[in-house]
Amino acid sequence: MTGWLAERTGVDETAIWQWGYLERVSTGLYLMRLGEQEQGRRLLTTAEALAPTD
């Protein structure tokens, strides 16, 4: 999907992936703060699975 977006927007594919990852984390944290524990945890869990393992 990031390749598709990069191709159509001219934005670097890595930058698109990083933005999507950070958006998932920030939205997950925001939902947790609002009391939406289940939805927030779901986003944070998938972000953790996608996290780079350098």
Rank of each mutant, 00 (worst) to 15 (best):
M1A: 15
M1F: 13
M1K: 03
M1R: 00
T2C: 01
T2W: 05
T2N: 05
T2D: 04
T2E: 06
G3P: 08
G3R: 12
W4T: 15
W4K: 13
W4C: 07
L5P: 04
L5D: 03
A6T: 03
A6F: 02
A6Y: 01
A6N: 04
A6I: 00
E7P: 07
E7C: 00
E7R: 11
R8L: 05
T9F: 15
T9K: 07
T9L: 14
G10S: 01
G10P: 02
G10Y: 01
V11I: 15
V11H: 10
V11F: 13
V11E: 14
V11Q: 14
V11A: 13
D12F: 11
D12R: 08
D12K: 07
D12C: 12
E13L: 13
A15N: 00
A15E: 08
I16E: 13
I16P: 08
I16F: 02
I16H: 04
I16K: 06
W17Q: 07
W17M: 08
Q18S: 03
Q18R: 12
W19V: 09
W19R: 13
G20P: 03
G20N: 07
Y21Q: 13
Y21N: 05
E23W: 13
E23A: 14
E23N: 14
E23I: 15
E23Q: 15
E23V: 15
R24V: 09
R24H: 12
R24N: 12
V25Y: 09
S26P: 00
T27C: 13
T27I: 11
T27S: 12
G28I: 06
L29Y: 02
L29I: 06
L29M: 02
L29V: 08
L29P: 01
Y30V: 00
L31Y: 11
L31Q: 10
L31S: 07
M32Q: 09
M32N: 03
R33S: 06
R33W: 07
L34T: 07
L34S: 04
L34A: 05
G35N: 06
G35E: 03
G35A: 06
G35V: 12
E36H: 13
E36L: 11
Q37A: 11
Q37T: 13
Q37H: 09
Q37I: 15
E38R: 14
E38T: 05
E38Q: 04
E38N: 06
E38S: 12
Q39S: 07
Q39D: 11
G40C: 10
G40L: 14
G40V: 04
G40D: 09
R41H: 09
R41E: 04
R42W: 01
R42C: 00
R42G: 00
R42N: 02
L43S: 05
L43V: 09
L43W: 06
L43N: 12
L44E: 00
L44M: 06
L44S: 00
T45G: 07
T45F: 10
T45C: 02
T45L: 12
T45D: 10
A47E: 14
E48Q: 02
E48R: 08
E48F: 05
E48L: 09
A49D: 05
A49W: 01
A49T: 05
L50E: 12
L50Q: 13
L50Y: 01
L50G: 05
L50S: 11
A51D: 10
A51Q: 09
A51E: 15
A51P: 02
A51W: 08
P52Q: 11
P52G: 09
T53F: 06
T53I: 10
T53N: 12
D54V: 02
D54I: 00
